[in-house]
Design a protein around this nucleic acid. Structure first.
Length: 415
DNA sequence: TGTCCACAGGAAATACGGGGGT
DNA sequence: ACCCCCGTATTTCCTGTGGACA
């Protein structure tokens, strides 16, 4: 057989076995806003999120009769489509307003990563083109003033979509105070605030004086059920994958697993994506078994990815805790962990924090789920947090590996 | 019943690093 | 180039605490 035909055949079989035809549809980050909306529209067209869309529409309807809708608070866990649904509708209203001659614009303030009040305001100012990006060194008042100046000349409806409000860490109060009390009084436009949050109780510990000013409608996004997820996944498969290489039942399985565990559409698509990648690498169709393995892998990588993007101190602390040899008779206490941590800091040349600060880090690690920490009293033997690690051994190894790399140490040259 | 361990965790003080004003 | 101001991170200082043990 000719070499050329051999190669051609080889390429042909590879092409036939290709699973991912359009990678971009497996990752929303890579899609343009317009494309996202298109995908979304198709999903909405099959009646997913129907109720929420109706409610949103009726909430904003007063705009079209020159009335003033109240503020809105949208609840829902991550991946339930809060952001994307609200944005889609705002976009729709925008063009509708344009058609009807109603002045309206909207701003999407994305706080998906936790940030302090200052950052949030700065981001808002950037979106409005009212200020450059500052790191520090400018007062909150100054920022607020600039934001106001920027929109002073605008008189139409002004929708401010604050995504994940509860992520404003230090002083959510002053942030809200500005938005709720100060801004509406100083600018001529009709301000409509839309908040989203994944916690139902985010308003619980805000200043009651602000709270009373904040008259809001509420809207709840329930996690997707298996049926919704099936529709969403089906669309992605159709757009991104070679349907011949997806075994029957895979779609249903991913939908079932995802709805049972979290009801998060993004994670469901991620699982699909991971399965497809693994299948392609192995040159086999996506099977049910492969989905299981992809699921395990995602679970394993989750922690490593999280610690990789964390501050150095957190990394050092976690590594030290994971490195303390477990002794069956005595659980680890804060003191033990702190000793290990200071030793590690000495080794890698990191300035060690005080025990007080370390204690806060331990609580943080507990919050993120890396470790289990609970306060326990041993009578005259003191009162302390007891630290337990409940991660599977492979994950522990992987985390330690990642952290060592972060500290420019060769993980293999330890012995 | 009182003591005292080994911290927890709140509050205030201080350090830091950066930007504006001059 | 200098100083001052700001927000944030960390330290310092402190009071509180559940229960085993004497």
């Amino acid at each position: 057989m000719q070499v050329e035909t051999k190669i051609e055949e080889q390429i042909q079989t590879l092409l036939n076995n290709t699973i991912i035809l359009n990678r971009r549809y497996l990752d929303d980050e890579q899609l343009q806003r317009v494309e996202q909306f298109k995908v979304l529209k198709e999903i909405f067209d099959v009646d997913v999120r129907d109720k929420e869309i109706r409610e949103l529409s009726s909430h904003f309807a007063p705009m079209f009769r020159q009335d003033h809708p109240v503020h809105l608070s949208v609840y829902g866990k991550t991946g339930t489509g809060k952001t994307v649904t609200v944005l889609y509708l705002l976009n729709l209203f925008h063009s509708l307003c344009l058609k009807k001659g109603v002045e309206m614009k909207y701003i999407h303030l994305d706080l998906s990563t936790p940030k302090p009040c200052f950052r949030a305001l700065n981001d808002l100012a950037c979106l409005l083109d009212a200020a450059k990006r500052y790191k520090k060194g400018i007062s909150l008042d100054e920022l607020m003033g600039r934001i106001e100046d920027r929109i002073k000349s605008y008189t139409g409806y002004f929708v401010l979509f604050v995504d994940e409000v509860d992520h404003v860490r230090t002083d959510l109060d002053s942030f809200l105070k500005f938005l709720v009390k100060r801004l509406p009084q100083t600018i001529p436009s009709r301000l409509i605030l839309v908040f989203s949050s994944n916690r139902l109780n985010w308003q619980e510990n805000i200043d009651p004086r602000i709270k009373s000013f904040l008259k809001m409608n509420e809207l709840f996004f329930a996690p997707y059920n298996a049926l919704d997820l099936q529709k969403i996944l089906a669309l992605r498969i159709e757009k991104a994958l070679n349907p011949k290489m997806v075994e029957s039942g895979v779609l249903e399985k991913i939908a079932a697993v995802s709805s049972r565990n979290h009801g998060d559409a993004r994670k469901a698509v991620e699982l699909l994506s991971k399965s497809a990648q693994m299948a392609e690498k192995e040159g086999v169709p996506i099977t049910l078994d492969l989905v299981d393995r992809a699921y395990d892998e995602i679970e394993r990588d989750k922690y490593a990815a999280m610690i990789k993007s964390s501050p150095k101190q957190l990394q050092a602390a976690l590594y030290s805790i994971l490195s303390v040899p477990p002794s069956s008779h005595k659980p680890m206490q804060t003191g033990d962990a702190y000793n290990a941590y200071s030793a590690f800091c000495g080794k890698v040349g990191l300035r060690a924090l005080t025990q007080r600060a370390f204690s806060d880090i331990v609580s943080e690690l507990d919050m993120y789920g890396f470790i289990q920490a609970r306060i326990l009293s041993h009578g005259r033997y003191g009162r302390t947090k007891e630290i337990a690690v409940k991660l599977p051994p492979e994950v522990v190894l992987k985390i330690k590996h990642v952290v060592l790399l972060e500290f420019d140490l060769n993980p293999l040259a330890r012995f």
